[in-house]
């Protein structure tokens, strides 16, 4: 496992074409809404979060990362029936942190990606839980065991997904 500290000049910054920028998050949201109907366990995965992390780390721009996270999160909120902004806030924070981390660390290898995705999944869960309990007064139960298991599943899927999405990267 290799997590390398790099200076700002050393890290590669990528960009994506417009169809990929729009289409991949939309596809992730679509699959997230469609697949659990057939495979209920799929609802433990969070494809929009994985896409947010990937774009944020690849672009290495905190503003771009947080905006990507905010938009994806808000659309995800709109597909549910809870208040709009819960996923939005959580994914904004994750997008910002992921892109900030991407500036500092080279997280191109699978092990680093696994750990980073697991960490951001937990951060996402904690932020969501805090806002939902604190502001909206939703009755949620936090379970570390369940969160870590779901985080691991997301991390494994994320590693595979990132390798697929790497194909769409364009060097600046």
């Amino acid at each position: 496992m290799q997590i390398t500290y790099t200076s700002g000049e050393q890290v590669e910054v990528y960009r994506f074409s417009v169809p990929v920028t729009v289409g991949v998050p939309l596809l992730a949201l679509f699959l997230q809404a469609f697949v659990p109907r057939r495979f209920p366990l799929f609802s433990y995965l969070d494809l929009p979060l994985l896409v947010t992390i990937f774009f944020a780390m690849a672009r290495r721009s905190p503003i771009s990362g947080l905006l990507t996270g905010a938009v994806i999160g808000l659309v995800q909120d709109a597909l549910g029936h809870h208040h709009i902004g819960l996923f939005g806030i959580a994914k904004t924070v994750v997008g910002f942190l992921a892109s900030s981390l991407g500036v500092k660390l080279d997280v191109e290898n699978a092990g680093a990606r696994l750990l980073v995705t697991l960490g951001f999944y937990l951060v996402h869960g904690v932020v969501y839980f805090t806002v939902a309990r604190g502001m909206v007064n939703m009755a949620l139960n936090w379970s570390w065991g369940r969160s870590i298991l779901a985080g691991l599943a997301n991390a494994v899927l994320g590693v595979m997904l990132y390798f697929v999405l790497d194909k769409f990267k364009q060097r600046t």
Binding site: P62, I63, L67, T92
Partner: peptide, 27 residues
């Protein structure tokens, strides 16, 4: 700049959330 934008975006969302909570439970 990055931090300020982050705080701004979060503030807007928190504000929107607060308005929704304050107004009513329906969507």
């Amino acid at each position: 700049r990055n931090l300020i934008i982050l705080v701004g975006v979060l503030f807007l969302q928190v504000l929107g959330l607060a308005v929704q909570v304050k107004r009513s439970a329906d969507a």
